[in-house]
Amino acid sequence: MTVYCLYIFNRYGECLLYRVYKRTYAPRDPGDEQKNMYGMLFAMRNFCQKMSPAQAAESDGKGLTQREVQAHLQYYVAGNYALHYFETPTGLRFIMTTGTQFTGFDVNQCLRRIHARLYVEYVVSNALYTPGEPIQSALFLEKLDAYVKALPIYE
């Protein structure tokens, strides 16, 4: 089990952070990969919502002030890796790719913590950070690395 990499996107599809942990190769064009990933997740997210059984009951007929019920993707598992997805109500997407043996460990909870304890404390509260720009704060990256590397699924 291991953590491969971490991505943070905002709702405009801008990649705020791409952090490599145990990924063993570099994609030919990381920018291209990020664009594909955002596109895939965007489609998947809409599809997940379309399939939600709670949808009809939530609509108020006017379609103006009510949104669909949120039925977010949580993760998908492929042959030799898993991708975990967490989206905040403010439209930030936290994505972590890990190995497939994460049963009994809530990776989504980790992503929530990264948002609540690290992103909010060291990025949002940083007056020098302009929303929408790639995150370069050394302090944030240091805390993030320490957090990720201390996860029991890291190794």
Partner: peptide, 21 residues
């Protein structure tokens, strides 16, 4: 406010805000 929104969701325990109401 633009920044506070994230702080709010991180700290308030409110997990979603689906509608204007």
């Amino acid at each position: 406010g633009v920044r506070l929104a994230d702080d709010f969701f991180a700290k308030s325990g409110v997990s979603d805000c689906r509608s204007f109401q």
